[in-house]
Amino acid sequence: MNNKRKIKTNLKTALLWSALFFPTGLLMAQDGAALFKTNCSACHNIGKGRLVGPDLKGVTNKRTEEWLGKFIKASQNFINSGDADAKAIFDEYKVVMPDFNLPDADIKAIIAHIASQSPAEAEQTATVEVVETATSSEPAMPGSEVASKEDIKKGSELFSGKTSFVNGGPSCLSCHNVSNEQVPAGGLLAKDLTSVYSRLGGDAGLQGILKSFPFPAMAHSYKNRPLTDEEVRLVSAFLYDADKSNIYQVSNSGNGIFIYGGGIALVVLLILIALLWYNRKKNNVKYDIYNRQIKSSN
């Protein structure tokens, strides 16, 4: 608590805020942890290495709160506005951070949470311990690497929608495609997830996203029907397997059937048309007469 307040003094506006409404500031700090979990944890970590986005440990020391606020609210606009640092980060990670249309107070709370989890250099070890205790309070989920074949199969069924999610969330396949023989070709509305496991940095990133979807479209779709922990485990196990076995997969996009089948169907259709309308009137009824006129005039 002491530590947190120390950092807050570095933040001018926050200082004013907390000075005036101290109890509220305390409340905010608690909110900050929850808000970070729902909004940020899918892609960001504090002190546990990079996921989709950078590790946010110590970011409050490097950037001003104003800078962070702008990035959170509309990262692309901010990058395009010509901020060199923001552009450098984007160039490094290449993943567009979704815009978070949160109230200023929530953003402040999140920043405060990050700050509280990022101790000054000297106290780093202590904080890491704190973080570890915090994570260890949640039951540890077995890693996808050790998932059984059965789990992978169950995961693929959940992915394709063959078995429904317990809370009634839509199946992944309706928007996402995975090149894997266990599931049919999927939707093209969202990103291809064949290599999502490695792209999102393994279980930590992937399961973070699956637990609380950070992307607006997904957040909306799964708002009141989140995936259970078991489902998260199974789906990520399947995605791990899909990523791993990707090089052995034959593309099942069905393009070949469409092209060759379409060609054959066209020929059949043309023959059918030719037969059906064989007797139709092809020339005008005076065709022969006109031809004779032309011959005789030559």
Binding site: W277, N284, V285, K286
Partner: peptide, 9 residues
């Protein structure tokens, strides 16, 4: 409609 007379007819 191929059965319909055309202007040439």
């Amino acid at each position: 409609n191929p059965n319909m007379p055309s202007l040439e007819d």
